[in-house]
Computed example of a mutant assay.
Amino acid sequence: MPYFFKGNFMRATLLTRRFICALALYCMTITFAAAAEAPLEIKAVVVTMFEIGEDAGDEPGEFQMWKAREALNTRYAFPQGFHDIYVNKETGILAMVTGMGTARASAAIMALGLDPRFDLSHAYWLVAGIAGVDPQDGTIGSAVWADYLIDGDLAHQIDAREIPADWSTGYFPLFFTEPADQSASGQPANAKNGEMYVLNASLVNWAVSLTKDTALHNNKAMDELRARYKGYPNALGKPQVMRGAQMAAATFWHGKLLNDWANEWTAYWTNNKGNFVTSGMEDTGSYQAMLYLDKAGKADKDRFMVLRTASNFTMQPPGLSAAQNLAMESSSTGYAAMQPALEAAYLVGSKVVHNIIEHWDTYKTQLPGEK
């Protein structure tokens, strides 16, 4: 190669190598900067369990109202969970969809709590979902703040067709051999396996006080349904904000006998301090994940709230069997209070979330309701 061309070729090669090195150094700088970027501080996590269709523009589930009304427009891919996460970076509100059932909820919350993109160390957690309501305590469309979380799955069970004639039920706590054992010792229940959790009473009291006067939606179909519950005065009333124990069970149970069991199960595990009011699926799993995250310093278990809103009754009205009533609820018409319950979850829950955001300078380090 002539010297002239050889020299130019070597200079060009050197410049190319320098350019590549500079480009590589720049890319590495950007990568390290991104990796070192501080996690986004989250002030409130809204936990929903399902969405009916799309995240916007169609019939809403538990998530859609929060996304639209809180301007949750920043999307974070969340392949380690059920559904992508949405955030409003200005307000610090994050909302998630865990998927239905205890297992999905627990796994999704654990995955979020360990996600390095978010700082959840001071975040308040609000579960906002629909539930069944005991007509002995309340009515459809109501919003119920949970004080106790009861697990309805951890138990022994013998099929009702095989239980001894003198047994009242074939469903009794783990490590007992018969229902009578529940009260035979006279000792307080020890929920060491996650059969019962107590939520932060001060925070629950604060949430109830803040939201108790919230006007909740009602409609003619709800009036017609609740009118069937003659003999249940609390079921005949209008929707209101309440408090009570929340039963979590992966099996969607229904009927008077199981409703009686839920009340007895709650009384047993809370030593008669709690009253069963609402039934759902996920909340004991969600809170168990919070306990682990709290131990790891990733979240604060005392900032966890559960708000369940009543879309249906947990048992049939007089004149119908449990099977007949369940079939009616599962028909094409669905639950009479479905949409009002979804609205109630947002109306009541957002009051708490907005108050936390507005007073973040205080509530970041001091919990509401505490002196």
Rank of each mutant, 00 (worst) to 15 (best):
P164C: 05
V127S: 13
V306Y: 02
A12I: 12
A68W: 08
D181W: 13
V127L: 03
I140T: 14
R226E: 05
N325Y: 15
F82M: 01
P79D: 10
Y148H: 05
T74M: 00
A22T: 08
Q339R: 13
I109G: 03
F4P: 00
P79V: 06
E343Y: 15
M305E: 00
N218P: 01
V47H: 04
C27H: 04
N271L: 06
H254C: 01
C27G: 03
A165W: 03
G285P: 12
S332D: 05
L291N: 08
S202L: 08
D159G: 11
N312C: 03
I85Q: 01
D361T: 14
L120E: 00
G334W: 01
M328Q: 10
W261K: 07
V204I: 04
H122I: 01
M196T: 02
G285L: 10
N272T: 14
L94Q: 03
L40E: 07
I52N: 07
G57D: 00
Q64P: 01
P340M: 15
R11W: 07
Y268E: 00
F176C: 09
M96R: 11
L25M: 09
P340S: 10
L342I: 15
V45K: 09
S183F: 11
G244P: 04
P135N: 02
V133A: 09
L236R: 12
H83W: 15
A189Y: 14
M328A: 06
A77K: 15
E358K: 15
K220N: 09
T29G: 10
L347Y: 14
V306S: 00
L342M: 05
I93C: 08
